[in-house]
Simulated scan of single mutants.
Amino acid sequence: MNHTALPTTIVIPTYSEVRWDYLTRTLECAHAQTHTPEEIVVVVDHNPAMFDRIKRELPGITVLQNEYAQGVSGNRNTGAFYAQTPLIAFLDDDIIAEPDWLERQIEPFADPEVIGTGGFIQPAWEGEAPRWMPGEFLWAVGGSYTGMPTETAPIRNVWSANMIVRRDVFVAAGGFRVGFGKLGDRNRPEDTDLCLRMSEVSDNGHWVYVPGAVIQHEVPAERASFKFFVKRCYAEGRGKVQMGSLHEENSNDALGAEKSYIWSLPKAVVRHVGAAATGKGADHLLRAGGVIAGAAAAGVGGVVETVSKKRAGRRNESEAAQ
């Protein structure tokens, strides 16, 4: 254990008693860390019955109710603004963290210019992983994907299922953007948006990806379907365009990482086809198709959102002229 590590509060958002078993498992992992957190905070999203049950049945943690409008962004903010430790760690309520997850992921904060870190997210499939699922698109089920760093390295953004932030920079950035996140069929990248804004308000601050800090993220059977995959990629395309429009005034290219990722996909298709052709399994052909389908769905989503944005702009201009 690193005795010089900064004190850390773990914040876990939750919302439904359907996820009770997941939540208790996540809390067991949080309590079992080799670096003991200063406090564990569970924030309940507008569910008084679940809030009361947690207070009654789960001792040793702090339980809060979402102080903002419904949604995970406000849920996380409630816990983060309550916390007083220099570092705040965010975990989803359906993960299994390795015992040394926290210890490993706070190590980069020895560098004062590190404003946040993220770790490796291993999809934990409820059933069999789909044969057609390409590693390049594991982000569609909340996992780390092929092409990410394999050693600790700087990165533009990480994901809130496995994220640690410096509290002072998080507060200076205003926390997660409430109303911009995952709720219902909306899938806006509130975590990427936060990373960009924290980088903007800090002096030379940067994010670090720590692949040795591992969590497993539950993937229910219904999220292993091709239909879900296409819908998720479509929503991601729309969400990234929405996020980009929020950062248009920033001199940096808010979608630079996405553009680099898109250019890597043709190589992924060639790689999978080549693997199939050299006897490494016909599943690689399916994965090549998965790459094409995912890229197409995300592209359509991006086009739809871009057109919608332009129409809204013209409508606003017309109303203003009247």
Rank of each mutant, 00 (worst) to 15 (best):
P99M: 06
I106A: 02
R76Q: 01
R287G: 10
D111W: 07
W101P: 03
F180H: 02
H206S: 05
G179A: 01
Q33P: 02
R177K: 12
A32G: 10
F137W: 13
K259F: 11
A254D: 07
A124V: 09
I40F: 07
E39V: 09
R271L: 10
L138R: 14
T150A: 13
G79F: 07
E218M: 12
Y261S: 02
A89T: 03
T26P: 06
E218F: 15
A49V: 15
L286V: 02
D193H: 13
E38M: 04
D21F: 09
N47K: 05
T150K: 12
W139C: 12
A173T: 08
A276T: 09
G147H: 01
R166W: 02
W125T: 11
L255I: 09
L183C: 00
L6D: 07
L285E: 04
P149D: 07
R177E: 14
T117K: 02
S264P: 01
H272M: 10
G175S: 04
P112M: 08
I215M: 08
G143Q: 06
L138P: 00
S73T: 15
V291K: 00
N75E: 03
E113D: 15
Y261A: 06
F90S: 09
S144G: 11
I54D: 00
A32Y: 08
E98A: 15
T14Y: 07
E103G: 06
I155H: 07
E151M: 11
A129L: 06
G74T: 07
A89K: 00
S16N: 14
A124P: 00
A213P: 04
G237T: 02
K280A: 12
F228S: 05
K240I: 12
A30T: 08
P112G: 08
E98R: 03
W159D: 12
G301R: 02
S199G: 14
M133Q: 05
V303K: 01
Y209G: 06
W132H: 07
V42S: 00
H284S: 09
I106N: 00
V201P: 03
I61K: 01
T34I: 05
V210W: 04
G127M: 10
A129M: 09
K55T: 11
N2Y: 05
D185H: 10
G119M: 08
P123R: 09
R156N: 13
E98W: 00
S264D: 14
R177M: 09
V171R: 02
G135A: 14
A254Q: 11
V41G: 04
P123M: 10
P108Q: 08
A110G: 09
A321D: 13
V44C: 06
E249F: 08
N316E: 14
G147W: 04
I12Q: 01
F228R: 04
E236Q: 13
W159L: 14
A97I: 05
G302P: 02
T34H: 10
R104K: 15
A295Y: 05
L286W: 12
D21V: 13
A276K: 01
G142V: 07
A221Q: 12
G143S: 12
I54C: 03
L265M: 14
E126M: 13
D100F: 04
L138I: 10
A30S: 09
